[in-house]
Simulated assay, not measured.
Amino acid sequence: MNIKSLLEVSEFSPSSLQAPDAWMGHLPFAAWIIREVSPKVFVELGTHSGNSYFSFCQSVVEGGLSSKCFAVDTWQGDEHAGHYGDDIFTQVNAHHQQHYAHFSRLLRMPFNEAAAYFSDESIELLHIDGLHTYEAVTDDFETWLPKLAPGAIVLFHDTNVRERNFGVWRLWEELQGVYLANLEFVHSHGLGVLQLNNAPAQKKLPWLQPGSPEKQDVINYFAALGSRQLERYGLSQVESRADEQGRHIVVLTQALTEREEQVKSLDQLVTERDGRINSIMVERDAAVHHLHDIRNSRSWRLTAPLRFLKVCVLRLRRQFFTLCHLIRLG
């Protein structure tokens, strides 16, 4: 086992991390195993948001491998992953085209349909992570088994999930009795790793063989790295939420400042309105006082008969004009 490569993978930092986080505890192992195997062809069945697949691809680039990589998925979801729209594939495809399109392909189709596009005994590393019922994962393995090269490595995710009709654990127990070169990580929902029995001597992975003293060391090491990876992801999520909340606070602060300016403007308008009302009230009081003074003056009392006479004259005048109008009509 290459100790140097084990130390190097401890520094592996995935360039793409998206929800869900079910595979994140295995990303360091993904980066390491693809370099250990250095497959001519790597295939992943079930890619979803791309956490596992992009870690394999990133390690191909960083390790200078000549591997050809293929991700097979309908990108529509299923009863275990949940169903989703085209936005997931759009995001995955954008990252893929930007970073890995020169050696990788995304095959958007059912698994059994994609199998027809691979020659028998051509795939040296296969990752199965599709629908997790016993029947579905068994069919995936049996369909793709003829496509596997002698001594190929096969990964099964969710071997440690025993709920919601998951059945990978059941197939994994059966395969362990057939393919003795295997190990299982129980963290992050479980990951089973096996090597086909027909491996040439030069392709056998010593740490995977029955009774290997290194097997438990590999399990412990990558469980620890996986735990660190999950902690980093959790921290990044906290930082992301904090940044989002910070941006929200900035928006709220700006809105509050604008509201305070509006209140200030309204206060100014109210002050100006109150000032005008006060001026009007003062003028009204002055007019009432002036009118009171006039009515209480001597001249007002002396001219009262004249004002009365004026009213009478105006009344008689209106009556006269009315009478003249009626005479003309008659």
Rank of each mutant, 00 (worst) to 15 (best):
residue 276 R to W: 09
residue 108 R to W: 14
residue 238 V to P: 01
residue 253 T to W: 03
residue 13 S to T: 10
residue 59 S to Q: 13
residue 3 I to Q: 15
residue 237 Q to A: 05
residue 150 P to H: 06
residue 164 R to N: 15
residue 250 V to P: 00
residue 81 A to N: 08
residue 173 E to V: 08
residue 24 M to L: 10
residue 160 N to V: 04
residue 1 M to A: 12
residue 22 A to R: 11
residue 270 V to G: 07
residue 307 R to D: 04
residue 229 Q to T: 02
residue 87 D to K: 07
residue 170 R to K: 15
residue 93 N to E: 14
residue 306 L to D: 06
residue 134 Y to E: 05
residue 128 I to Y: 09
residue 53 Y to I: 15
residue 109 M to W: 00
residue 161 V to A: 13
residue 99 H to F: 14
residue 133 T to L: 06
residue 320 F to R: 08
residue 100 Y to W: 13
residue 199 A to N: 06
residue 89 F to I: 07
residue 45 L to Y: 08
residue 114 A to P: 15
residue 259 R to C: 04
residue 50 G to K: 05
residue 290 H to L: 09
residue 53 Y to P: 12
residue 225 L to M: 02
residue 254 Q to M: 06
residue 213 P to E: 09
residue 63 G to N: 10
residue 255 A to D: 00
residue 72 V to R: 04
residue 295 R to W: 03
residue 153 I to Y: 13
residue 285 D to M: 04
residue 142 E to I: 12
residue 255 A to L: 05
residue 199 A to D: 04
residue 228 R to G: 02
residue 5 S to F: 05
residue 257 T to S: 03
residue 305 P to L: 02
residue 93 N to T: 05
residue 239 E to K: 14
residue 20 P to K: 08
residue 254 Q to L: 02
residue 151 G to D: 10
residue 301 R to D: 01
residue 296 N to G: 01
residue 6 L to T: 00
residue 287 A to W: 12
residue 53 Y to T: 14
residue 314 L to K: 09
residue 300 W to T: 00
residue 52 S to T: 12
residue 23 W to C: 03
residue 193 V to C: 11
residue 176 Q to A: 07
residue 31 A to E: 13
residue 227 S to T: 01
residue 238 V to I: 09
residue 118 F to Q: 11
residue 124 E to Q: 08
residue 319 Q to C: 04
residue 155 L to Q: 13
residue 89 F to N: 09
residue 197 N to R: 01
residue 284 R to V: 11
residue 234 G to K: 00
residue 158 D to H: 12
residue 216 Q to W: 00
residue 289 H to Y: 10
residue 35 R to I: 07
residue 278 N to T: 14
